[in-house]
């Protein structure tokens, strides 16, 4: 290790609103992919267990919260820190054609994968043009 400042990968904390405990809340880095049958969101939430993830879809706003269990090893003191620990929170405004009951969520290795299938009536209908 050197004493130089190390620039680590993006882990940005949300500045407002503040928490009552003074702990930071981080914005999970997210990949969003649109497929033929819906949307897939992949959020990086290291340190979050499946029971501590809270996903809500209300008035088109999809909110994802994750509670982090801090990883302080027993009897050890923090000597050098490059990343902070704190809960994760992020919200997305969706287009309104998703069925909240069909949202699938899976957590593996600290990545939360959300699948939002498009509502059946909103599936794009392909119109073929007939040659006259």
């Amino acid at each position: 290790m050197t004493n130089d400042m190390t620039h680590t990968a993006d882990k940005t904390s949300t500045e407002t609103p503040e928490t009552t405990t003074g702990r930071r809340i981080y914005r999970p880095l997210t990949d969003i992919v649109e497929t033929a049958d819906g949307m897939t969101l992949m959020l990086e939430m290291p340190g979050v267990t499946a029971e501590d993830v809270d996903i809500t879809l209300e008035k088109r706003v999809l909110t994802i919260r994750g509670k982090v269990h801090t990883t302080q090893p027993e009897k050890l003191q923090l000597a050098y820190a490059e990343y902070g620990e704190g809960d994760f929170e992020r919200a997305f405004t969706m287009s309104d054609d998703f069925d909240p009951d069909k949202i699938g969520a899976q957590l593996s290795n600290g990545v939360l994968t959300l699948t939002l299938p498009r509502a059946a009536e909103a599936q794009p209908k392909k119109i073929t043009v007939k040659a006259s």
């Binding site: 400042m5 190390t6 993006d10 003191q77 923090l78 000597a79 490059e82 990343y83």
Partner: peptide, 14 residues
């Protein structure tokens, strides 16, 4: 000046 480093590490000592 520097490329971001991955992964970020925390070091604990006793």
């Amino acid at each position: 000046l520097a490329q971001p480093v991955f992964p970020a590490v925390n070091v604990w000592q006793s």
